[in-house]
Design a protein around this nucleic acid. Structure first.
Lengths: 201, 201, 201, 201
DNA sequence: AATGAATGAGGGTTCATTCAT
DNA sequence: GATGAATGAACCCTCATTCAT
């Protein structure tokens, strides 16, 4: 391997290191409380190096967010695009989403925190909103292929399904409950949250 | 009314003014992007005056949050504590929660934004967490008095119910849907999000 | 005098102090080598205070330049606009220009340094260029009322006259010569720099 | 040609390339706004290479300035040292100076910009000042061999003559006038800028 | 000798907080 | 008590210089 190639490989490694450090700092502190110096220290580089790889704090943040979200997005979209009856697809989607969220906590924290912020039209989140919309639309598509009554507002139901998943995961994040299993969430999603009146009770 | 009383009334008015201004600024910009100067301007006072009423930005924020959340909390807890069968209580709870959230948007934005943040153990939110837990516990209590199968994890189900409400409201905030009606949410909560298989299909 | 008036007076004083400090620092070091901290120290205020009065280093610089140049400009334009035969006007102009340049050295240094830079289309100098052009045009107007042969290119001659004055003053700045007297410059301007051939020599 | 010689030739070429790039960048941006990276890019080398040839930005700048100025200096001194009557020498001097300044604009811009700065005892310019003084002294020598009244302060008149040339050239640089011809400047230098009174007017 | 990624001191700017009036 | 100008710590970013390859 020649010098140029080595350098490229090395650079890719440093970039990775920086993004990881940024992930840990941003997910712990949030955007405004995160300091570039701390990211640099955790990445084991000097501040200046950060700026060799990313033109600004904002750009670093956006890149990180986009890469992280995209990774999750790809997995989830894949599951949602798989062939089969809608119920099967939904099961696979649940599995994929929970698996990738469980994989590591910083990503999860950032993901949840920022997707929520994204809904308030934050400044950093244009592209992320697009991905999020795309995901909800796809999910809505699958839901609409189910039997009624979801067909009425599939996009809305998609948002609610996502909300349920997010809530369940957050509960786990706080240590109050174990990380949700796909089968448990499936149960929750296929039963009323509030049971119907027992008619002849 | 004597001088001392008048003064007190006046002070209360200024305090109110400041909190309102703070609400509008914080809900628009979030904690870090909010500037004390802007709050002062919107309140029609000088910056120094803010510090006569609140010892710091953080304290102002916490007070605001706590007052806002408490107000919502009181209404919701009232509904949850009312007598009657659990289904009735839940209906009243839904109505109360939606009504107060609809009342004004800044409170809503702040509420959603910050309650979510609160789950990530933000620095400003110890007392709010306590209220939130209290609310979820109370809600769980009502849910547990329903027929099974909720009785298994009522606290968890309470969180999920709250998550559904929050999600629905956020969808409305973004202008994608009308503000949710209690009856619609009731429908959603009492039916499976994903309909069960048609048995003999 | 009430509080508000006192404050205004005080502010004007601080502003003056800052501009003076800025003048001394900028004239000693030039724009890029000048540090805001040093300006603040010389003005006897904190860095933050500079930003209460001027939004940025650049703005401070431009204001300083513009105020300084305007002051000189006003005096010189006044002399150039006075009534009388052109030769009288030119004498008065010479006196005014030399007097104001002699008044204090920092202004002079800044003036010369920056007017020269202005000719290279510096970034800070749009308004100054306008003043400079206005001045040269006025001077050209006076020159054109003289007997030929200046009438050919009065604007060019105006530039040359200004160049002569600037050169003479700079020589003095360097301590090589005393500050030029109006009468000496008048001599220089009304005689050839290189004497004509003695015809019958 | 052996290896060592070839290397030397190559190095000389690189050095030349760097100085040319530096000339273009410095003359466009001025010392402080010029970046080493841009010089390297224009020279077609890496930043590190600059430091193989010049120990610092300052040194590169000084070398560039000195080489550029020296080149002009040599030509002008040659003309000033040529034999003949002073008027002839001055004509040749004018021709030489204008020709070399016209040759390329970057040199000209740098020359004017920096020689002016040099007068303010800039940090980069000790050696250049020496050359400048030498040139003015030589010019003064020629002027002093003319008939009176220049003999009184020939060094001062030399500075004024140089100032006139500089002013005329700058006017051309700005595109307001064509580049001055030697004969035109000669006219200007041998006539009063402000014509004497018509005696019997 | 050439490379170019890494370095980190330095400087501009912000804004919560203070305090003299 | 109210004011708002002053403060200065904190933080982002630049870029000349270094040095391992």
């Amino acid at each position: 391997m020649n010098l140029r190639s080595k350098r490229k490989v090395w650079q890719e490694e440093v970039r990775r290191e920086i993004l990881e450090a940024a992930l840990s700092v941003f997910s712990e502190r949030g955007y405004h409380r995160a300091r570039m110096l701390e990211i640099a220290e955790r990445a084991g580089v000097a501040v200046g190096t950060l700026y060799q790889y990313f033109p600004s704090k904002k750009a670093l943040y956006e890149t990180l967010l986009l890469e992280t979200v995209s990774r999750i997005h790809r997995r989830v979209m894949e599951a949602l695009s798989s062939p089969g009856p809608p119920r099967e697809i939904l099961r696979r989607f649940l599995e994929a989403k929970l698996e990738i969220l469980r994989e590591n906590e910083p990503v999860l924290r950032l993901h949840l925190r920022e997707l929520w912020e994204a809904r308030f039209r934050g400044v950093h989140t244009e592209k992320i909103r697009v991905l999020f919309e795309e995901y909800l639309d796809r999910l809505a598509g699958v839901l609409s292929r189910l039997a009624s009554p979801l067909s009425a507002h599939p996009r809305f139901y998609a948002a609610l399904v996502d909300g349920i998943i997010a809530t369940a995961v957050v509960e786990a994040l706080e240590g109050r409950r174990p990380f949700p299993e796909p089968r448990d969430l499936w149960e929750i999603l296929t039963q009323p949250l509030i049971p119907r009146e027992n008619r002849h009770a």
